[in-house]
Design a binder for these strands. Structure first.
Length: 571
RNA sequence: GCGCCUGUAGCUCAGCUGGAUAGAGCAACGGACUUCUAAUCCGUAGGCCAGGGGUUCGAAUCCCUUCAGGCGCGCCA
């Protein structure tokens, strides 16, 4: 019995936790058989690394959780566990009962250097695991309307989604990243009218711009480009045809621009999926028909409704409007049906908080379609609020005043921007101070982490002239027990936790944890650097420390890369 | 009115599957470069975890409630 919080059997820390957990369970079973304690089932206790060093290497709360059922004090139960604990299960130096009933385990003195040996043997791929082997997960994110530029909300989604996908991949899942192109529906119509108005205005016609159109400068620029290329060849044709041609051109341009900007942001997709294709292929109609056949729909006021209330939702929703046009909702159901038909075990969507009303509807619709609603998971990000000059800077597509992702990348840089977005939990509303981001970007924690990496690279470079047998590191022929300084041991401990950290972050869909992790690891290294000189007279020690530094660099790099952040060798 | 998110140090935020003395960065203050990058390190100070009630051995964490902020509640997407 291994609980999720105990990590993976296959990881360095995870397997030690698992051994201790097994020992505790054995001890309890043994005590139960001997009549020393009474309980039905072993509770879901945790084995964790205590924050406080004096609390040992690992600690468990098992005794406290059993107290009520076993009708004994936690400390008495701890005594019983301790007495029956199979000591041969792993090399222990000490077990003690502490506080209200914690059991603290202290492993042999050299366990951390041993961990380091195991890490060293893994090398470049350190951090990856096979937990998710055989499971297919799709992460869909950004999916911005192709009618304008990417804004801060899209940027946050891009950073979170891309990092989450990387984490899942590192945990062994088969991952596909997807961008859903909303190239159908009302906003495309509006897009067409906006393009047409700008086009004709630019050609000297005095016509009004649609009030609810897209006022952005980019629309005008797109049309100027078209005029430069094709002149006024669309001026004197049928309006509907003109809008169709202009829309087609505009969509292509916008998508290309979105794709390019995301690439600059380090985001590459596996699939770009068109909403229009669902209409063209008849998939939307088929989905509506399928729901009809399942008896989940009814007609009211000439519209076709999905009886969502039957699936625990607040109210029913329209699938097909009275005018016969299917809603976005109907298309989205068809889209998600398509996702599951592609064989994904789990589908993750990253949406802005303003879409939260859509979450329950979609899950309900999935249930109506016969899928387990939990196979769809939606991460809602709270909105990004921009500050400039100490005031809230409103993003508005209507007025065209917004900061684009492209501008952000130019001002702040990809690395800092991505780190900044990933750092925050999606749940927290984010205040993005543009002045601060631009003027004081050196304060961004990303540089702290990158600096640690660059420092190590500098040491590795310097080591070349020291006559050290660097090849011995790769062969695992270094003296592990020379690593004994508290800062060295703390660094190893932090590093050893990396694979479990990835698994945890992946399983809980919490990419921000990895940002915190790399900061802590960098801190561990800087502390080690301040206390221990790597290159020195003692060649054996130098080599051991060099190996530690090198492995730290690999871990930092792997961690940063998960976030799409570079690990520079020089700064 | 109903629903979702948030409220933790001066500021920005972690911690929330209940655990030991609530953490980090920035800002403040005091120290550390003749040596592998000082974009660093070490130390000090800073908290009724929004308020109130409950659950229990134990609550920042779970439940109820009040207050404050954000976002939703379309035959928009």
């Amino acid at each position: 019995m291994i609980f999720p919080s105990q990590g993976s059997l296959s990881t360095i820390i995870g397997k030690r936790k698992a051994l201790i957990a097994r020992g505790i369970i054995e001890a309890l079973e043994r005590a139960k058989a001997a009549g020393e304690i009474h309980y039905a089932l072993v509770p879901e206790f945790v084995v964790e690394i205590p924050r406080e060093l004096s609390h040992g290497d690992f600690a468990t709360n098992a005794a406290m959780l059993l107290a009520r059922e076993a009708k004994k004090s936690p400390r008495d139960i701890a005594k019983i566990i301790l007495k029956n604990f199979p000591q041969q299960i792993l090399p222990l130096k000490e077990i003690e009962i502490a506080g209200p009933g914690f059991i603290n385990f202290r492993l042999g003195d050299n366990w951390l250097p041993q961990c380091f040996g195991e890490i060293l043997a893994i090398g470049e791929n350190f951090g990856c695991s096979e937990i998710g082997r055989g499971k297919k997960i799709q992460v869909e994110f950004v999916s911005a309307n192709p009618t304008g530029e990417l804004h801060m909300g899209n940027a946050r989604g891009a950073a979170i989604g891309d990092t989450l996908a990387s984490l899942l991949k590192a945990a062994g899942y088969l991952v596909e990243k997807e961008f859903y192109i909303n190239d159908a529906g009302n906003q495309i119509e509006k897009f067409g009218f906006s393009l047409e108005a700008r086009y004709l205005q630019e050609l000297g016609e005095d016509i009004p711009f649609p009030e609810d159109g897209y006022h952005g400068e980019d629309i005008l620029k797109t049309m100027k480009d078209l005029i430069e290329r094709d002149g006024d060849k669309y001026k004197n044709i049928d309006s509907a045809l003109r809008r169709e041609l202009l829309t087609q051109y505009g969509l292509e341009k916008k998508l290309a621009s979105i794709r390019e900007t995301l690439a600059l942001f380090g985001v590459e997709y596996d699939v770009w999926f068109s909403e229009q294709s669902l209409h063209d292929s008849g998939a939307v109609a088929q989905t509506v028909k399928a729901l009809e056949e399942k008896g989940c729909v009814y007609t009211k006021e000439d519209a076709l409704w999905l009886a969502c209330t039957g699936f625990g939702e607040e109210k029913d929703e329209v699938l097909v409007r009275a005018n016969g046009v299917p809603t976005y909702y109907a298309a989205d159901i068809a889209y998600h049906d398509n996702k599951f038909k592609r064989g994904f075990d789990q589908v993750i969507n990253i949406w802005g908080a303003d879409h939260h009303g859509h979450v329950a509807r979609m899950k309900g619709a999935m249930e109506a379609m016969g899928y387990n609603r939990d196979r769809l998971h939606v991460i809602l990000m709270q909105l990004v609020r921009l500050y400039r000059g100490g005031e809230i800077f409103r993003m508005s597509k209507r007025t065209g005043t917004y900061i684009t992702l492209a501008e952000l990348i130019e001002d702040v840089g990809k690395d800092a921007a991505r780190f900044f977005f990933v750092m925050r939990s999606p749940d927290s509303q984010m205040d993005f101070d543009l002045d601060l981001a631009v003027s004081q970007s050196a304060d961004n924690p990303v540089y702290y982490v990158q600096y640690a990496h660059a420092r190590i690279c500098s040491i590795l470079e310097a080591a070349k002239g020291e006559g050290l047998d660097i090849a011995a590191i790769n062969k695992g022929e270094i003296k592990l027990n020379r690593l004994e300084h508290p800062s060295e041991l703390a660094l190893i401990r932090k590093m050893a936790d990396f694979p479990d950290e990835i698994i945890y972050s992946a399983h809980h869909y919490e990419p921000h944890r990895i940002a915190a992790y790399v900061q802590e690891l960098a801190s561990g290294f800087h502390n080690f650097y301040a206390h221990c000189r790597v290159l020195g007279e003692d060649k054996e020690l130098s080599l051991s420390r060099l190996a530690l530094a090198k492995m730290t660099a690999i871990t930092l790099k792997n961690g940063l890369n998960l976030m799409g952040v570079n690990a520079p060798e020089k700064m």
